[in-house]
Design a protein around this nucleic acid. Structure first.
Lengths: 210, 210
DNA sequence: AGATGTGAATGAGTTCACAGCT
DNA sequence: AGCTGTGAACTCATTCACATCT
């Protein structure tokens, strides 16, 4: 089955592909060129079968009797995950969190770059944050157009989240990451990914009940 | 089956309980006192059956023919999730992200409070961040002991993550949130919850392949 | 009547076990 | 011999359908 070109890939699988990529990068740094699914599983505490299943649904990347070529598999995964080109990111709301994300290494890598940021606070407009100059939220549509941002990041107060998602949709971004606790009504063309940091504490707290 | 007191509750279920809590809080703000599983499902795009299944495994919280009492169910969920007391949090590494989290509303609520933060940079020691004064990383054990922190948050550079997890274990915290991309070897008594912000962008990018 | 709580049925996701290739 | 790729078996999670209670 050569390239099931994405009939349906579960979010969990995408998660794991991203994880495999991380592991493979570590191996490459150790100058390891070939790796079997078992070796990968042993080193990073994963399931060998699942690795093979996950990969096999997109093509035959391995060599029987040998394993996988690390560099080659990294390329395949980068391509599968859409990481073989750089995605431009715009941050809406430059508070503490927005500022942190603007400078976060993971948001400024080969595959991602924060190219713009807006805020409603006139005092912030014109200041540098990360690699860009903060612009006013009213300019959002123009900012997205001129910067070519594809992904919007919401780090505004909860009450302003819906209107800013709508604004990002209007402005033409293709996906949104939501760091607020607001539950947002979305349109299917612009998927929303929730990142509620508080939930991580709540899940942790569950294991702390005495 | 009254109170299966946690034989095994899947992380996914815990996730949803946390989500239900969030929805119920919204209803309470609208002064809604009773709600049925269907109503809840309709409003927040959830599954009514699943809500009932999830709740039923911990007791009989509803009234047949009527529904659930919003305020009462909030209390039950808070108790189930261990949110009925305040958990103290210590942040290790006060960079941009550590600083943002120290002041993040979700980390300073009824159930959580950032009570301390440490960094290895002597210039930062003594400065205020959120509600606490930054202390030196060498003092971690003493800081944890005197502040009574139960949850550690790792916002250090990737290379320092393992040693700081170990330090937090030594210092006596009961769980750790890891915001770095390092893969950390853990001990079972101190569970580690991964929060890799880059993964959210990668998952988003998957839906942007043309 | 109307909603919960739950066994039974279905579906999704994971693991097993091995055929097939190098 | 050794490892991938994959149908079959299995496990876990969700949904259905209804008995049960207010």
């Amino acid at each position: 089955m050569p390239f099931t070109s994405s009939a349906e890939t579960s979010p969990q699988t995408v998660n794991r592909l991203s994880l495999y990529l991380r592991c493979l990068r570590q191996l490459r740094e150790l100058h390891i060129q070939k790796v079997s699914s078992q070796e990968l599983a042993r080193r990073f505490d994963l399931s060998a079968t699942q690795i093979r299943k996950d990969l096999a649904q997109f093509g035959e990347f391995g060599i029987r009797g040998v394993g996988y070529d690390v560099a080659q598999l990294i390329d395949h995964l980068r391509s599968l995950l859409g990481l073989d080109r750089r995605h431009k990111v715009v941050i809406v709301g430059i508070g503490n969190l927005g500022l942190a994300l603007a400078q976060y290494p993971g948001f400024n890598s080969t595959s991602f770059q924060v190219v713009a940021g807006v805020d409603i606070d006139h005092d912030k407009v014109g200041r540098k944050a990360g690699a860009f100059t903060i612009q006013h939220a009213e300019e959002l549509a123009a900012v997205v157009r001129s910067s070519g941002a594809e992904i919007g990041v919401l780090t505004v107060p909860e009450a302003a989240a819906q209107e800013n998602y709508d604004g990002l949709v209007q402005a033409g971004v293709r996906a949104v990451l939501n760091f607020t606790r607001a539950r947002i009504r979305t349109v299917p063309e612009v998927p929303l990914k929730e990142v509620d940091l508080r939930i991580y504490l709540e899940e942790t707290a569950f294991f702390l009940r005495r």
